[in-house]
Design a protein around this nucleic acid. Sequence first.
DNA 1: AGTGGGGTTTAGAAAATTCTGAACGTAGTC
DNA 2: GACTACGTTCAGAATTTTCTAAACCCCACT
Lengths: 163, 163
Amino acid sequence: MKNLTKSRSEFAELLGRTAQAFGLTPSVGQIYGLLYLSAEPLSLDEIAESLDLSKASASIGTRQLESLHAVQVSSKNADRRDYWEARLEPQEVLQKMMSTVLAPRLANAHDRLEGLLERMEAEKNSGELSNSAFTVCQQRIQQLITKTNQFKTWLPLIERFVK
Amino acid sequence: MKNLTKSRSEFAELLGRTAQAFGLTPSVGQIYGLLYLSAEPLSLDEIAESLDLSKASASIGTRQLESLHAVQVSSKNADRRDYWEARLEPQEVLQKMMSTVLAPRLANAHDRLEGLLERMEAEKNSGELSNSAFTVCQQRIQQLITKTNQFKTWLPLIERFVK
DNA sequence: AGTGGGGTTTAGAAAATTCTGAACGTAGTC
DNA sequence: GACTACGTTCAGAATTTTCTAAACCCCACT
């Protein structure tokens, strides 16, 4: 990483690993880390240069961060470059991620579990699954469905906490 | 996956992907999924056979799940095999993960940020970092530290919610 | 003490993910 | 209407993660 002090690039790497923990790529986290400590907005080339990334990665990364509302783009006039800057409220980024990433996944999981229950009933009827095995499965999956429903209810509450 | 009905192996795969979202390996999730729907405890060989995994993966996976309190091991007498069964309360597994995985990471992140601040001050004094740039960095990292502290406070509260 | 059935370890194979270079599209400028 | 400076796309290279096979250890039984 050129162009950055040791500690600023260390910060970027820290955020890179953090991003991974959230299922994002390291470079996305690094970009956010870079912008988060930057006094002014940076162009794509500056980002790629500072973090020693290809422009391609920088482009993909910034767009993804934008879709997560973690950064915003602007343009200095008389310059056709895009300039990127971090939104400085990590809580809001987190909140957005919860509603745009976590919530849909939860809904998806819920649907899959429902579908699974149906297919298991079919397997019971066709004899592939013994009655007693089915009972166990049904009961446990039902419990899981209930829990995901509960969690869905709590999610907005947790969001407000985090904010 | 031999030995399992279509829907049971689908459930295992679903949990495999879910596990990845939590930073675990797919096989770990699959094993939990298998045990979660199993009426009786299973031996290592049965797990490997059912999920089409090597015994090595099964061994590593079960041990990791044990450390997360997601499964427990027992032995039928007159049989030296280990028999594994799922703990059926996913909430408690989640809670345990929060305290054993999330909390230490938070603490670690906190320490790193503190260290970073110090090193940045040094960089300012040595002239590597301009005064104005330092001010921005300091302020923003400080904000981050404050937030992680807040989050640390909330964590136990959230844990109780999830349970 | 030797044997066999169990679990664990680990070097490296396989798979999955992430990143890059090169080609492309587009809009502003001369 | 060619040129240039920018962002984007995508095939495949590079890296990282995950899994496996084989060697190993340990204990129970003989």
